[in-house]
C-alpha cells in the first residue's frame, strides 16, 4: 500500500528525515510516534506531496508520489491544525470540497455523528477550536477512501467527541482500510493501534506491535516503554 525508500528532507540546516525506510502493506491502524520535531508531520506531508523530499522514493498503491497528484483521490487526510478559509460557512466549505473531489460523500451522516448541525450556517472564523476539529474530521472521513491519514486527530476534542472519534476509527478499520495516525495521547494510541512506528532523528527506531515494544524495552506499560526509548536516546 505505502512504500517509502531512503527518504531525506532538510529544512535549512535542520535534518528532519534522514534516510527513512518504511513499508506498510497491512490493513488496520498504524500509529506513527516520536518526540516533537522527529519528522512525523513531515513524513505525512511527504506522503501527500505537500512536502517535496530531497531524496528518496514514495509509492502509494503502486503509484509514485513525486510530480503526481491523482493518487490523492484515494487518500483521506486530516491536517494537524485545522486551517480553513475563515470567511466561508461550514456548509459552503463542505460543498466546495465535495465539488472539488467530484466523489460521493457521506457528509450528512458525519455531520449528524459529530452533532455539527447547529454550526452549519456559521462562519469558520467564529467556530471554537473543537468545533473546527469536528469540521476537519467530517471533511476527512466523508470520502470513504482506502487510505486514511490522521495527524493529531484528538486535538481540541471534548471527551464525548473523543469517544465518537474512537468509534469512527474502529468502524473504518472494520471496513478493511489502512489508517495512519499520529498522536501524543498514549492511552489513545495504545487502545487503537495495531502497529507502532517510532520515529527518532528522522529514521524508524522501532516498528512492531505494542506488546513487542513492551518486551523489547522491558517495561510493563506502554507509556513507560515510550519514555524509556526517549530517555535512552536522550531525545
Amino acid at each position: 500500500m505505502v512504500s517509502i525508500k531512503n527518504l531525506h528532507k532538510k529544512f535549512g540546516a535542520l535534518v528532519v528525515l534522514n534516510g527513512l525506510d518504511l513499508e506498510i502493506n497491512q490493513k488496520g491502524i498504524i500509529a506513527i510516534l516520536g518526540p516533537n520535531g522527529s519528522g512525523k508531520t513531515t513524513l505525512i506531508k511527504s506522503l501527500l506531496g505537500m512536502v517535496v523530499p530531497a531524496k528518496g522514493d514514495i509509492e502509494i498503491a503502486g503509484e509514485k508520489v513525486k510530480d503526481h497528484w491523482n493518487y490523492r483521490k484515494d487518500i483521506d487526510y486530516l491536517p494537524q491544525i485545522a486551517h480553513f478559509p475563515g470567511n466561508l460557512k461550514v456548509n459552503e466549505l463542505i460543498r466546495m470540497i465535495k465539488d472539488l473531489r467530484g466523489k460521493d460523500a457521506r457528509d450528512k451522516e458525519l455531520i449528524e455523528f459529530f452533532k455539527l448541525e447547529p454550526f452549519l450556517d456559521k462562519k469558520l472564523n467564529n467556530l471554537s477550536g473543537g468545533s473546527k476539529q469536528k469540521v476537519n474530521l467530517v471533511l476527512c472521513f466523508m470520502f470513504d477512501s482506502p487510505l486514511i491519514i490522521l495527524d493529531e486527530p484528538t486535538s481540541g476534542l471534548d471527551p464525548v467527541s473523543l469517544l465518537r472519534l474512537r468509534d469512527l476509527i474502529q468502524q473504518e478499520k472494520a471496513k478493511g482500510k489502512t489508517i495512519l495516525i499520529t498522536s501524543h495521547i498514549m492511552s489513545f494510541v495504545e487502545e487503537v493501534a495495531d502497529r507502532i512506528v517510532f520515529l527518532l532523528e528522522g529514521k524508524i527506531y522501532f516498528n512492531g506491535t505494542v506488546s513487542e515494544l513492551k518486551t523489547s524495552t522491558g517495561q510493563p506499560d506502554f507509556e513507560h516503554a515510550i519514555a524509556n526509548i526517549l530517555t535512552e536516546n536522550n531525545a
Binding site: 501527500l48 506531496g49 505537500m50 497528484w69 491523482n70 493518487y71 490523492r72 483521490k73 487518500i75 487526510y77 491536517p79 486551517h83 480553513f84 478559509p85 475563515g86 470540497i97 472539488l100 473531489r101
Partner: peptide, 16 residues
C-alpha cells in the same frame, strides 16, 4: 490570505 485555502487544496487530488 488564501494560504489556508491553498493548504486545504494541496491535500486534494489537484495538480499544484
Amino acid at each position: 490570505d488564501s494560504r489556508e485555502f491553498t493548504e486545504l487544496l494541496l491535500a486534494q487530488p489537484i495538480k499544484r
